[in-house]
Write a protein that binds this DNA or RNA. Structure first.
Length: 290
DNA sequence: ACCCAGGGGCAAG
DNA sequence: CTTGCCCATGGG
């Protein structure tokens, strides 16, 4: 009997998906990754068009990595332009992960102004310090809002959060005391859910859209950060001088269709993987030219 | 609408 | 080793 469960995974690229800035707690191990899906420890490795996973986690893994998303239909819905085509080709097999809500909101809250390496460090520090640890497993469960609500700002700063400590504490308390109910937001439309998320301290339009996209599976959500802003200005507003944030938002909402979030993720990851584009090199996959 | 604090890893000097 | 870059949110 095989020591793993097998899942067919056509049109899927595990490495690309896990290293595209969606989640920050998976640890490379051998030719695969160890991590958690919610509270469940999982090891996953891709061999060709098959995933080999911890036995019993097949269903959770398939759902987490959204293997049911129809990538062909999604890519076919994108606007037909060279920028989009290049990004889609570069990101072939990249899927949007279905993340647990609280973990998603909290992690993206801490991501503001931070590079991937540091977001990863903060995530692991918070997990180790406040989360339930699993014997024999290198990654601990992300701490519940109730647990973080009992922490002090100084303790959170001790996890490397800096000024984000205050925001995470405030947000954890809002949720722990029921001022905002993340589960209940599932019933709202995109705009209403966005507004509710923005009530949380440290959560603005960018992070709220990340939560909509990665947590609530609102595949139209289009988070705009400076990387995406550069792509949009360069590729879609090349002739215009003054383009306001509002114009960019409006354009993004209309031009990329029902799967705009996928388009955004592909444009984002492609842009960040270009060597020295815009000065900062951020992803672990990028390397400087010799 | 504009301006700037804030924080620490990391690349560059 | 030291300097400067990164770049979301909130508050003035």
């Amino acid at each position: 009997m095989k020591p793993w469960g097998a899942i067919p995974a056509p049109q899927f690229n595990l490495r690309l998906t896990l290293e595209s800035g969606q989640v920050f707690h998976w640890v490379p191990e051998g030719d695969g990754y160890c991590g958690l899906i919610g509270e469940r420890p999982v090891r996953v490795e891709q061999v060709g068009q098959e995933l080999r996973v911890t036995p019993g986690t097949e269903e959770a893994v398939a759902r987490y990595f959204a293997l049911d998303h129809d990538l062909e239909a999604i890519c076919a819905s994108f606007p037909a332009d060279p920028t989009m085509a290049q990004a889609a080709a570069f990101c072939s097999g990249l899927r949007l992960i279905r993340q647990p809500l609280w973990e998603c909101v909290a992690t993206f809250l801490t991501s503001s102004m931070k590079q991937v390496a540091h977001i990863r460090q903060m995530s692991h520090a918070l997990r180790q310090r406040f989360g339930r640890s699993i014997p024999g497993w290198g990654v601990a469960v992300y701490p519940e809002p109730e647990r973080l609500a009992r922490a002090t700002e100084a303790e959170l700063r001790g996890c490397g959060l800096g000024y984000r400590a205050k925001h995470l504490l405030g947000t954890a308390r809002s949720i722990a005391e029921g001022a905002v109910d993340l589960e209940a937001l599932r019933a709202l439309d995109d705009a209403e859910a966005l507004a509710e998320l923005c009530r949380l301290p440290g959560v603005g339009p960018k992070i709220a859209n990340c939560a909509l996209l990665f947590g609530y599976e609102r595949l139209r959500a289009f988070p705009i950060d400076v990387w995406i802003e550069r792509v949009l200005r360069r590729s879609y507003f090349a002739r215009k001088r003054k383009v306001t944030a509002g114009q960019l938002r409006e354009f993004a909402a209309n031009a990329f269709g029902p799967y705009g979030g996928y388009a955004q993720q592909y444009l984002f990851h492609h842009a960040r993987s270009q060597p020295r584009a815009g000065g900062g090199v951020k992803t672990s996959a990028t390397r400087r030219a010799p």
